[in-house]
């Protein structure tokens, strides 16, 4: 499955109201480290497709979501379970760590 583009319109549905764990990547197009993180995020989305979801929030397009989760630095990666944040990583994070937290 590919990375879900998240916005105010679908955030509740895709992240809060699902029984799967969800990895959400907060990023912006002008952020160098975010671009570095993007290929890993795509790969994770493919590899966890059977049991978890992966989405991304562009902080320029959806500042309200970034504000709600207190995002002050990008990339920030949040992992949700039952609508709650269970892991938070600020900065580029290795794929293995994220994969193990999505299991």
């Amino acid at each position: 499955m590919s990375v879900i583009v998240l916005s105010e319109d679908n955030f509740d549905e895709e992240v809060r109201k699902t029984d799967k764990k969800v990895l959400v990547d907060f990023y912006a197009d002008w952020c160098g480290p975010c671009k570095m993180m993007a290929p890993a995020i795509e790969k994770i989305a493919e590899e966890v497709a059977e049991y978890a979801k992966v989405g991304k929030v562009n902080v320029d397009d959806s500042p309200e979501i970034a504000e709600e989760f207190g995002i002050m630095s990008i990339p920030t990666l949040l992992i949700f379970e039952n609508g709650e944040v269970i892991h938070k990583h600020v900065g580029v994070t290795d794929k293995e760590t994220l994969m193990s937290e999505l299991k």
Partner: peptide, 16 residues
Amino acid sequence: LEGKGVSYCAICDGFF
């Protein structure tokens, strides 16, 4: 407070 106002990159996080 890293990621909550403490940052190591002006060009990345100045926007916030």
